[in-house]
């Protein structure tokens, strides 16, 4: 039913009023802002997601590198070669060495992967490592391992001492002079104090093998790692003397975080 004549609305469709222009602009502006915000948010989300992935990837890479360099592949190959030789020469010692190596590998592959271990396990690992090294080197290399009889039940990040010890074996041995490697760990009221010392050999006029210095990168990595784990609560002193290399690492018994 058509509306009565008198009530018919006046057509205004084609004549924009100031208000309708304003409304149009407002809607347009709202849409634009909305779109740009969405765009911005999405792009931020993508960036953040990428960053997160990047961090994850970096972490994985670090973990893998760590795993690879915690104990050098050469250590493993040389140890296997010695066990291979022992099988011909002394079967019992060979068996013993396989057990020690498997302890060591188990620690490396499983325990240390969690980023947390107990001091006792860490020291067991150090002990197996030293006994493997003793198989490799002649008897005139003196290896000392001193730890407290009672090891307290505390958790520590794994593999903190091994790079220093590995380094000590790498640079501490000479066949022309007395060589020693000393590993000492003490527990005080609030700290774990670890000292690793090795003999150093300056070769006078002899043809000098370019003694690979403590690789700067290695040490920088260790410091970075310690910084991350303990921030300011650790101390690391390295004394590089003429005839001895000494590392002193002091860690708090309990970590804050």
């Amino acid at each position: 039913m058509p509306a009565p004549e008198g009530y018919r609305l006046k057509k205004t469709d084609n004549e924009p009023t100031p208000f309708s222009i304003f409304a149009d602009l407002l809607i347009f502006a709202v849409l634009l802002t909305g779109a740009s915000t969405t765009l911005k948010l999405t792009s931020r989300w993508i960036t953040e997601e990428n960053m997160r992935r990047e961090i994850e990837r970096e972490q994985l890479k670090t973990e893998l590198t760590l795993l690879k360099y915690q104990v050098s592949p050469h250590f493993l190959m040389n140890t296997l070669n010695n066990i291979h030789a022992l099988i011909d020469l002394d079967v019992d010692r060979a068996k013993d060495a396989v057990i020690k190596l498997s302890l060591l590998m188990r620690y490396l592959l499983y325990d240390s992967a969690h980023g947390k271990t107990t001091l006792r396990k860490e020291l067991e690992f150090i002990e197996s490592y030293i006994s493997m090294m003793k198989i490799r080197y002649p008897k005139n290399v003196v290896v000392e391992y001193i730890v407290p009889a009672e090891i307290p039940d505390i958790s520590i990040p794994p593999m903190l001492f091994i790079s220093f010890l590995e380094n000590a074996f790498k640079h501490g041995i000479s066949y022309r002079a007395e060589s020693y490697i000393h590993f000492k760990l003490e527990i005080t009221a609030g700290n774990i104090i670890c000292q690793i010392r090795n003999s150093k050999h300056s070769s006078g006029n002899e043809p000098v093998l370019e003694t690979k210095k403590y690789s700067g990168i290695g040490l920088a990595n260790i410091r970075k790692n310690l910084q991350l784990l303990y921030s300011e609560s650790y101390t690391l002193n390295i004394n590089d003397r003429q005839d001895e290399f000494e590392v002193n690492l002091t860690l708090p018994l309990h970590r804050e975080n």
Binding site: N81, N82, L86, I135, R136, Y137, P138, Y175, R176
Partner: peptide, 29 residues
């Protein structure tokens, strides 16, 4: 430099008919 590794190579040389072991050395000197 590793005694066991040296002993192994020494024994390999000795059991190879066309090789003769003159010496085993623990180091370059």
């Amino acid at each position: 430099d590793e005694p066991l590794a040296l002993e192994q190579i020494g024994s390999y040389v000795q059991k190879t008919p066309f090789l003769e072991l003159i010496a085993t050395c623990k180091n370059a000197y």
